[in-house]
């Protein structure tokens, strides 16, 4: 049985929407960061599905670069979270309202 490419794309749209919603309603800064990763993964799925449709390798190369940037971003973001927690003693985003550490 074949699966329509559109189903993969709809799945990726659903994952992206859930990621946006979690980004909006979550109050814990770590969970907010995780929902950003979920959105990146949803976009990666769309890239791979389109690469399969057009028979192009470049779509998968894009996913490779997204993964590299996501890894760098996770390292820096979690370091920022640790230093914010050190100075504020909280992870709730409502109580983090200054850029100053």
């Amino acid at each position: 049985m074949d699966v329509p490419i559109a189903w993969y794309l709809i799945l990726s749209a659903a994952l992206f929407s859930i990621g946006v919603f979690a980004f909006l309603i979550k109050r814990n800064i770590i969970t907010i960061f995780m929902s950003i990763e979920l959105m990146l993964n949803a976009v990666n799925l769309a890239f791979v599905a389109f690469a399969h449709h057009w028979h192009q390798v470049s779509g998968q190369i894009f996913v490779f670069f997204v993964m590299v940037v996501a890894a760098a971003e996770a390292a820096v973001g979690l370091a920022i979270i640790i230093s914010v927690y050190r100075s504020r003693e909280t992870l709730n985003v409502d109580q983090i309202n200054l850029m100053k550490l």
């Binding site: 329509p4 709809i10 599905a49």
Partner: peptide
């Protein structure tokens, strides 16, 4: 907002599903 986003994306994909073809 999120429901609107999902509906726009999903309806675009559903209307274009014949040109996307099968995997």
């Amino acid at each position: 907002g999120v429901l609107a986003l999902f509906c726009v994306l999903a309806s675009t994909y559903v209307t274009l599903r014949t040109s996307f073809g099968q995997a």
